[in-house]
Amino acid sequence: MNKATKLVVSISTLFRQTRSSTFRCNPIPTIAIINSQTHLRRRESLEPNGLRFAGRVFCSESGVKRSFFKCWNCGFSSEKVAFLFCDSCRSIQPVDDSVDYFQIFGLEKKYEIDDGILEGKYKDWQKKLHPDLVHNKSKKERDYAAEQSAKVTEACRTLTKRLSRAMYIMKLNGINVNEEDTITDPALLMEIMELREAIAEANDSNELNQIRSQVQEKLKQWSDSFVKAFESQRFDEAVKCIQRMTYYERACEEIVKKL
């Protein structure tokens, strides 16, 4: 195997850096869909430009910061955290980067979620935001639709999978997990080697399925450990859990490829 160089940054991210803040109506409608890993690592540098907070009014009320959102089209003001769509005039709002994926789905910022509700909520959003539904609206709103629906898709993708969800919630807590970090734990290295061999040597789908259920069991265990570590704010440990999950997730992919 090649000694891998550290991956730098994908073009999709670069595009966001170089273009998205200046060209709001750029010709690439789905610019906000970004490969999730690089996205998480790079996003911080993109957020603070504040351009997107158009129409947002802040006011303090008895010491608690509350925000109202004003529809760009009809001026209707909403207190909804995830104000992606105006219920009054049915127009799509510009993307607000301060809205996180959990808020989009009306979820508490917790790792363990009831992922059964994601699909339904996802469809509800797409029914309001999908670019197919705004053909006759202005170019501006069509761009909002492309970006919002892309963001909701990315949110759904990120929250559905345990690993990406774990990385995302860490990110929200200010910790960027670099999944390409080198492994130093010799025990883990050994285990990965053995696992790879087992997958390579497996002859039929029965064997592969057996390995897969073992790997998935491990994934579940490390996912549980992640919850504990994360909740007690032992972030170093949480990062280790994520690393483990990354390797098991990859092993799973490898198995599915062979199946």
Partner: peptide
């Protein structure tokens, strides 16, 4: 590092992007 990125938008149009990167530069 040659990054090839593909984008399919809601109207099913495909765009292909290619960029050259060197290790250490972003």
């Amino acid at each position: 590092e040659i990054n090839v990125c593909m984008d399919i938008d809601a109207s099913n149009a495909l765009r292909v992007f290619a960029a050259v990167l060197m290790p250490g530069s972003s």
